[in-house]
Nucleic acid binder design. Structure first.
Lengths: 193, 193
DNA sequence: AATATTAATTATACAGTGTCGAATTAAACC
DNA sequence: GGTTTAATTCGACACTGTATAATTAATATT
């Protein structure tokens, strides 16, 4: 059928990203398929293709949704934190990744073909998460070092990320690490003291 | 044909892993296919299936090969290093990942189904890399802190890994980080001082 | 030396996948 | 009411990993 008015273009986009995000959250990136998604929302693959152009673009939208949720989660946790805001940030980073394991890993596993680079909107979302953490890093830094805040934030994000990644992909299990959050926080403390 | 004597079972394994590793090195994990690999070495998919049982097991073998090469590379670099061995270790970590981009990323992107866990032989290889770095960390640590060496090594591996990962997957580009190795090394120095 | 056994290799089939263009068909326009 | 427009579906293509049955070459047995 054509130009069905049961969903506007925007509604359809929302519908697809929503269900796509749910499927990845439940079954993981490896088991994700556009056909299954289409069937679930009562459309055909062609429609998804028509709306997003390719699986890659759909994945960017789905991962973008994950970034939004992540930002929201971090922001919420930081809102209600008083003391030890760095600790809250690190813990929230881990919590989100562990609770939303599959969609968080999809964020890491998916990569665009080498010739394409990330769309600006996506980069903005990443920068948004960084800005959130960046404020805490800046606040925690002694007065003489405030200028380092930006660069240090990037580095600490990577630091925490590494610990989080090793936790989720089994490397820390293999190496006998049982308190990864504690370790990550210790590295952060080493850097801001 | 059957029981062809042009390759023994071991030779065949070696042949497959070798060509598989080469293909991933060149085209990346996403473009890897058992059929292409089989054709290249003059066999059929069935043979690969017969030898390795599944793509997952083949991938473990290929990634195992990457770990071997990585270990070898690190070990070589550390052999000829005198001063600043920690810096050499961090730089070598990055160098290998950048030069062998695709196979290094395959190491991170590939994941077994959730119910299976990594075979002992694979875990041993990961532990081998850790042991290599562990010695340098232990040496760099002040006398009073030698007991921390093991735990700290795990944490610093994760730290460097995070920086390396963000370098390769474009996150650092998005965040404006232009000297990731320097940043990683700074975090390491923060921790061992 | 001929035959029977064993197992490596191939052939074939199956149920999927993303992509894509042509054929529909519902809605909007005149 | 007829025509244009574009959303949706359909069908085809070239792949993928998996799996089993059919071959066939090497080995063992007689």
């Amino acid at each position: 059928m054509a130009r069905r008015s049961d969903h506007s273009r925007d509604e359809l986009e929302e519908l697809i990203v929503n269900e796509g995000h749910r499927q990845i959250s439940e079954a993981g990136y490896a088991n994700f398929s556009a056909r299954k998604l289409a069937k679930k929302i009562g459309y055909t693959v062609g429609t998804i293709y028509h709306v997003f152009g390719s699986l890659d673009h759909l994945m960017l939208a789905i991962n973008g949704r994950t970034l939004d949720k992540w930002h929201h989660y971090l922001s919420l946790k930081l809102e209600t934190a008083d003391e030890d805001r760095l600790q809250v940030a690190v813990e929230a980073y881990f919590e989100f990744a562990i609770v939303h394991r599959h969609s968080w890993l999809a964020l890491m596993d998916f990569r665009l073909p080498e010739d394409q680079d990330l769309p600006e909107s996506y980069v903005q979302k990443v920068a948004g998460v960084m800005a959130l953490v960046g404020r805490e890093v800046a606040d925690a830094l002694p007065d003489g070092r405030k200028a380092e805040a930006q660069a240090l934030t990037r580095s600490l994000l990577a630091t925490v990320h590494g610990h989080c990644f090793f936790t989720l992909n089994g490397t820390f299990d293999a190496l006998g690490e049982s308190e990864p959050v504690k370790a990550a926080l210790a590295r952060v403390r080493d850097a801001v003291r």
